[in-house]
């Protein structure tokens, strides 16, 4: 949305056309898998068995969705997952910003040391058992805290955020310092407003990983009342063919819904909330407005 207009050369027009065509293809290729899942989940199981691609539902039905919501447990699990995602993402954003900001200040002594200290943990980790023992010693097993605390800070996301902060012109901060603002003021009132896109990205990163994470739920929680949606759903779709309904006789399995339809439905209801939230975050990606607005 550049304010200064200029004329495009014919060469540029052609290249733009090519790029646009490419983008249309990319969009199709990117959207299709999820579309496939959604349409499959809305199709009658038997009609869906013939395979192939799905551009629209075959014999539209909501039976798999209705089957899923017939149990109490899924609502408990859903509530836990939403709560976990919101709270954990909130905590994560705070601690990530607090860590990333100081590390983006070039004059800070010991900065590199801290960075190395954090980066090292991206490469080396103690593994499942020591972590489990730690969480046990902290009395976090079977508590809600285990969803919020152990995964609070991702070194990967922190380094990216630090880079965003570094990109903010130092002059802004310098002038604020001269006005007597503290570093916390600068972070809260100058850096954060300028980094909306960065925070949207971080929110999405943390939100998605919190929403999708299930191993914590499997390992650290036995209490059904604290079960996560992903743990509940994973059990439904990761049936081990040799032991499940397929070989032992099971009256209930003769229902007209196939494992494949169920799997697609599970994927659809896991991904849909993410897509909705993500498309809301989109508006922070519009460029060119922020720097100007702060300067004025």
């Amino acid at each position: 949305m550049s304010k200064v207009k200029y004329k495009k050369s014919p060469g540029e027009r052609v290249s733009e056309l090519i790029i646009n065509i490419l983008l249309v293809i990319i969009v199709f290729v990117m959207i299709y898998p999820f579309w496939h899942v959604l349409m499959y989940s809305l199709s009658d199981s038997r009609a869906a068995m013939s395979g192939g691609l799905f551009f629209y539902p075959r014999k539209f039905t909501l039976i798999t969705y209705r089957m899923l919501i017939r149990t109490k447990q899924i609502f408990i699990a859903f509530k836990n997952s939403v709560l976990k995602t919101v709270l954990a993402t909130f905590f994560s954003l705070i601690i990530t910003a607090l860590t990333a900001y100081p590390l983006s200040i070039p004059g800070l002594k010991g900065r590199r040391l801290v960075q190395v200290y954090i980066f090292f943990t991206m490469l080396f980790s103690g593994g499942i058992i020591p972590t489990y023992l730690l969480i046990k010693d902290l009395h976090m097993l079977d508590t809600f805290w285990v969803y919020l605390i152990p995964g609070m800070l991702s070194a990967h996301h922190m380094f990216i955020l630090r880079n965003f902060f570094q990109a903010i012109p130092d002059s802004l901060e310098e002038s604020a310092m001269l006005d007597g603002a503290s570093h916390m003021d600068i972070l809260l009132w100058i850096v954060l407003p300028l980094s909306k896109a960065a925070f949207a990205t971080q929110t999405m990163f943390y939100g998605v990983s919190n929403w999708n994470e299930y191993m914590d739920g499997v390992l650290y929680v036995n209490d059904q009342r604290l079960q996560l949606l992903q743990v509940y759903l994973r059990q439904l779709i990761y049936t081990d063919g040799s032991k499940s309904v397929l070989s032992g006789a099971d009256l209930a399995a003769s229902a007209a819904v196939t494992e494949e339809s169920m799997k697609m439905t599970v994927v659809a209801i896991t991904v849909l909330p993410v897509i909705i939230v993500y498309s809301f975050l989109q508006k922070y990606y519009m460029k060119g407005i922020m720097i100007g607005s702060v300067k004025e």
Partner: peptide, 23 residues
């Protein structure tokens, strides 16, 4: 204040990443 801001992150990394490192 910048050092103060770093404290939660460093404590977190120490407790949850370095303590289990003996693994």
């Amino acid at each position: 204040m910048l050092y103060a801001m770093l404290i939660p992150g460093i404590v977190y990394i120490t407790v949850f990443k370095y303590v289990p490192m003996y693994g």
